[in-house]
Design a protein around this nucleic acid. Structure first.
Lengths: 254, 254
DNA sequence: CGATTGCTTGAGGCCCATCAAAGGCGGTGG
DNA sequence: CCACCGCCTTTGATGGGCCTCAAGCAATCG
């Protein structure tokens, strides 16, 4: 059962994923961490394949993913879908909407998710009284932009194999950063269809690309579990350089 | 001469492009506008094809384009280049670097440019004493992210013709927003090579794609001048919806 | 007037989309 | 408990979009 995998004991975040993530981007005090934990305490369970927000909406609250997997996406008039980002625990859905006013894309869950809705008043209060947290939130937003640039580069210039390998490297690192991945494996309950929509290729070709990566021994992917036999080799194959994720070295050593 | 076209009298911004742009994202007071004008007064001329910043750098200043055309880009180990964004007058190059610490991509001029370097102290002072300007700067950053999402969507899901048409629609609107385009035409001194690197296709295919758009009468593109005979038709062809540029309606009417 | 840069065109072939269909696998219900 | 169903994955066949290589042309410039 997909849900069980994300909730299985040894992959449960040892700490709050929001705190773990934001620590990578800013120096937070103990008080800051407690504030964030309180903030993310009031959770809500959402089923798989539910829209959290839709394009055009003007949400009053900011959504946050605390467990499960979600994605940003756009749908074109002809029905084609482009997945713009995968959201893992600790990721915000719509921090930007306070300034931009409305969503220019939608967000839906891919697996059952635990989410938190944070009121805009709370965000405003953070901005006033918690400068380090505010900085960390902006850091998270800017990292999202960095990831977007890397995806664009991959889609424009990399082969489908390299692009796929690169995505797996990225997800492994991001899940590790929130305590949801071992050193060379993680639960990744994405369908090939979803992967295809993220990489901009057809599902059939996605399937063949994965088979190719499996055949050469770069990945083991089955039953929602990704294992990377040789992480350095996969990273070399994908020319993966984690700089664009802007994780502090200090935090990485911890 | 490319330089001359950008400096030709009738396309000279009637007002400061930075002010014109930021007015689209926030309500600025007259004092705010004067502050921005003062800020952008100390300009520097840069030749075409010069790097303003390179990947990995930790610039001490924030760069701003006041005239000319520049781009964000990444180069892969095999030498392939992906252009991540076109920067037009009024656009910032590296606002994010104060929080992210280092550049995860490079920026170079495509035409001769006039740029401004703003010290990080000045930015910090703005953050402290000019909340509306600060908000406008964040707005600009978030719009950049929206543009990135749209580009990703185009690269993944649109045909090369639609993607190209979409880019032209975008640039026309963005240049209009800073007073550098007429209602259906603008100077656009991009080589087909540069366009190809932005769209993620080969230069040869870029050439054929442009010919196709010309043949069906959607665009006229020659000598660095883009003319769109029927803007609504081009927008319909590209399924262009300017929402993602987040230009305030209020300002759009002005 | 060579040299450089950008644009254009042709030929051949690969990558990838599309269409179609068959085989797992979990879940449901009789 | 097994038949059935839906979702996902896999496989084959075919065609087209796009890449690469290669060469010719136009415009600009020292």
């Amino acid at each position: 059962m997909i849900e069980a995998t994300w909730h299985s004991p040894h992959l449960q975040p040892p700490s709050n994923p929001l705190v773990m993530k934001l620590e990578r981007g800013a120096d937070l005090s103990e008080a800051d961490k407690r504030t964030l934990e309180t903030l993310s305490a009031r959770t809500r369970e959402v089923e798989a394949r539910q829209d959290l927000i839709q394009e055009g909406e003007r949400p009053e609250v900011v959504h946050l993913v605390m467990s499960g997997l979600a994605c940003r996406y756009k749908v074109l008039p002809d029905g084609k879908r482009q997945i713009l980002a995968f959201l893992v625990p600790g990721d915000f859905c719509d921090l930007h909407v306070a300034i931009l006013g409305f969503m220019d894309h939608s967000i839906c869950t891919l697996t059952p998710c635990t989410t938190v809705a944070i009121s805009s008043e709370t965000i405003a209060e953070l901005a006033l009284n918690h400068p380090r947290i505010t900085r960390a939130l902006w850091w998270a937003t800017l990292v999202d932009e960095g990831v977007l640039r890397e995806w664009l580069t991959g889609m424009g210039q990399r082969s489908s194999e390299a692009q796929t390998a690169h995505l797996f490297c990225e997800l492994l690192v991001r899940l590790q950063a929130v305590g949801l991945a071992a050193s060379n494996s993680c639960y990744l309950p994405l369908t090939q269809n979803e992967l295809a929509d993220a990489l901009g290729i057809s599902p059939v070709h996605m399937n063949r690309t994965l088979q190719q990566l499996r055949t050469v021994g770069l990945i083991v992917l089955a039953k929602g579990m990704l294992t990377v036999p040789d992480v350095a080799r996969l990273q070399a194959f994908a020319h993966f350089n984690p700089n664009y994720l802007h994780l502090l070295r200090r935090a990485r050593q911890a």
